[in-house]
Design a protein around this nucleic acid. Structure first.
Lengths: 200, 200
DNA sequence: CAATTAGAGAACAGCTAGTTCTCTAATTGA
DNA sequence: TCAATTAGAGAACTAGCTGTTCTCTAATTG
């Protein structure tokens, strides 16, 4: 004698990529509206108008879902500016990365970093994402810098090449957002450029 | 008609500092045995053989308790070696810091960093702890380096002075533990020492 | 020695993580 | 074309945690 007022099982049922897109959108919405700390599978399922079962079929925890969402989003956020010189390319890239950290994506990044700190298994995958994305864009800028004869070619691909980005992330973690221009100038002019610039 | 087999209300009751010490010990034990992700007020209260009420009277959340525990512990962990030269002092300090990151304290540090990522209110206090502790020890080593005429005196107290520690923390977050000697050598020999050493 | 403070123990409501049902729409392939 | 399979929707449920609020009573204070 169960009365069902609305049975969504009748409606058009989303599947596969379409459903996944709705779930990822709901995850981003959750990060923006409630923050990483208050994100829950229940909330995401309701927001995406799907069921928890559909979520758990794909991801085991909220953390996995956040890391996956980050992986899907991070590629579209990288900007590789070409402004004419290595120094201004780097400055533009760091500034735009800092701006992204201060946008809604910042909460996603915070979630991924929190997950790295919390979860040993996920840490490897999340670290790979962070260790790949930034340096990849950086490498393009550095390559052009070598061609122009502005920077030391032997440093390409080494830890030194990514020092600027490491320090910017440090600033994000320890200083929060927004990241002032002064911090970026400091990283570049005092630390990074003296290191990589060719001695004349 | 309630039968009480054991009523601990009769026994000697701990208070103040004594009780707090037991709670902090239980918190550290929880971090080691279960990890930051599985830490709960319930577990800590049971482990410290006290009540949740006593915990909530002091701290509002597990995060606060973890950050407080960190604050209490961090001072005793700083080592300021005096080995005869600035370079070897720094190497010894970074190595010992890296070793601490690989000890049970590492899980506490992970907890504090996770809390910074998760909780906006606590972040300020936790950041202050991290931003103060390391540089403080560093400053002593740097001061001696200036006296010996080994490093550029104008960098004392600037962002540049702490670059080595920032990069080590980056390594901890993105690379995990243990931190190999090669990473420390790289940070020092390729990045840090060329920056701060006096040109001859 | 009386009044006050604070710990112990317990119960509780509310929320979340995961799991596991049933029912049924959409897809596949013989 | 139709039967079999896959997978989403909805719901129920257990277990565990948070944060609060009782009562009882030990320890401290004045």
């Amino acid at each position: 004698m169960a009365e069902r007022v609305t049975d969504h099982r009748r409606g058009p049922r989303r599947r596969g990529a379409e459903l996944e897109a709705a779930i990822l959108a709901a995850t981003r919405a959750g990060l923006v509206e409630r923050g990483y700390a208050s994100l829950s599978m229940d909330w995401i399922a309701e927001r995406a108008r799907t069921s928890k079962a559909a979520l758990y079929r794909r991801w085991g925890t909220v953390g996995e879902l956040v890391v996956y969402t980050h992986a899907r989003l991070v590629r579209s956020l990288l900007t590789v500016p070409d402004t004419g010189s290595f120094a201004s390319d780097m400055r533009a890239m760091l500034r735009s990365t800092a701006d992204v950290m201060d946008s809604e994506y910042g909460e996603l990044l915070r979630g991924v970093l929190a997950e790295i700190m919390k979860n040993q298994e996920l840490a490897a995958e999340a670290r790979r994402q962070l260790a790949d994305s930034g340096p990849q864009a950086m490498d393009e800028i550095y390559r052009r810098g070598i061609e122009r004869g502005e920077v030391r070619p032997e440093l390409r691909g080494t830890r030194t090449m990514t020092v600027a980005l490491d320090l910017l992330r440090s600033e994000f973690i320890l200083g929060g957002t927004p990241i002032p221009d002064a911090a970026i100038d400091d990283i570049l002019d005092t630390v990074y450029l003296p290191l990589v610039r060719l001695p004349d």
